[in-house]
Nucleic acid binder design. Structure first.
Lengths: 225, 225
DNA sequence: TGACGTATGTTCGATCGCGAACAGACACGC
DNA sequence: GCGTGTCTGTTCGCGATCGAACATACGTCA
């Protein structure tokens, strides 16, 4: 079972050996909610090819995606900062596998395991940048550019050029109406950058999509491929 | 010299005693830029009554405030996460005093000083929530509500009901045009919530302003007064 | 006192995204 | 094969904000 998760991969071999017994493989399926805001964090997750969205919930019903966690990161980060409840909703946006660990074991491991702590710190920084960039992006860039960015980020994390997502779902992620997504998507399609039908999206021209995306995409590339 | 900064205040007396020799008092003045994105972090700052804005810079010239640091926090947090350069611009938005420490000493102290590490972790979590909330707020709430929230957050950190700020400056913080601020501000003034002239803003009715502000203000109150 | 710089106020048309409603089109189950 | 639910496409009027331009008012300093 190769570990593709970057946080785990950054742990030194000796430390990693002590971590392994705590890790179990979990299959996350689309639509699962790992936590709602305020939920106790019982497990932390290190995605391999799963993809989890972090959503800030406002006024109990409005939700906006502020971060996206794939194999470059982990879910349940708050636990590493000494907080036992999740501040956000964590929604599985792309099904796949992830390594799971009890929050308790994770907390203990952090104290005994400097390379894990370092890897988690580095990811914390990355996530903070991602959230900050998203904030600015939502303010300054229009829907087509944000959609293009979102598709590219998803692509990179799922490592696939096609995936299943409806306009309705995308609307929730981007914080716009479904119709807004339809308009933006059909514009991208007109340019032959993507193709889609009934929840199935295909990226046809990745370089072209990068041009259509705002600079935020490049600002948030992770270093390792 | 009483320490009002919450991060430093959370450090245990024994640990704090070892920290003191490293700290020097600094006066931050309005308009100072502590770091630009990419700048090496040479010092970290723990504001007492100064107020620092964290701005994400997009496309080299657009900037949006994503966080606000007063005595509840610290500036240069990235250094605690193992990153030596600042990801954001840190702009002094309210002059005042802060405790300053070299980044090197800070880094060393973190390793030797568990209560400092815990306090920094807690603040990291708070900042992450603040940035996420700001992202959602910018998407869902209109300018008058955001302005009201911003004024209240500033008030809490400066601990004063009046301060000097122009509409132009506020526009940069909120990511809107100056005219948009003027319109929103005059609406708040019409309701007798605030008063202002030529860069001097007075909060007349704090409870009323809280009602005018979006829920994001309450979502981000720090526990300790 | 007068001139200049800065801060605020007002207006204009344009654009973007909103909420709502309805129309087709595909997919799956009976 | 047919009905039903889901997904996408289109339209409409509305409101918020934009960019730009210009008008007014205050303050400072020569």
């Amino acid at each position: 079972m190769p570990i593709r998760n970057h946080v785990l991969a950054a742990v030194s071999p000796a430390d990693y050996a002590r971590l392994v017994p705590q890790l179990t493989q979990a299959t996350l399926t689309f639509g699962d909610i790992l936590y709602e805001p305020g939920d106790r964090i019982r497990y932390v997750y290190f995605p391999d090819d799963a993809l989890v969205s972090l959503l800030t919930v406002v006024d109990r019903h409005l939700a906006l995606e502020v971060g996206m966690v794939g194999r470059e990161g982990m879910v349940g980060l708050a636990r590493a900062l000494g907080v036992v409840t999740s501040p956000m909703r964590a929604l599985v946006q792309g099904g796949g596998t992830a390594w799971r660990m009890s929050a308790m074991a994770f907390h203990k491991s952090l104290g005994q395991n400097a390379s894990l702590q370092n890897a988690v710190n580095a990811y914390t920084h990355f996530l903070l940048m991602q959230v900050a960039q998203t904030a600015a992006c939502n303010r300054f860039h229009d829907v087509p550019a944000r959609l293009a960015r979102w598709l590219l980020m998803t692509r990179d994390r799922l490592n696939a050029d096609q995936f299943r997502l409806t306009h309705e779902f995308l609307g929730h992620m981007l914080g716009v109406r479904r119709v807004g997504v339809t308009t933006a998507a059909s514009e991208l399609r007109r340019q032959n950058l993507i193709e889609y039908q009934r929840g199935h999206i295909v990226i046809l021209d990745r370089p072209g999509l990068e041009k259509a995306a705002c600079s935020c995409y490049h600002a948030l590339k992770w270093s390792a491929k």
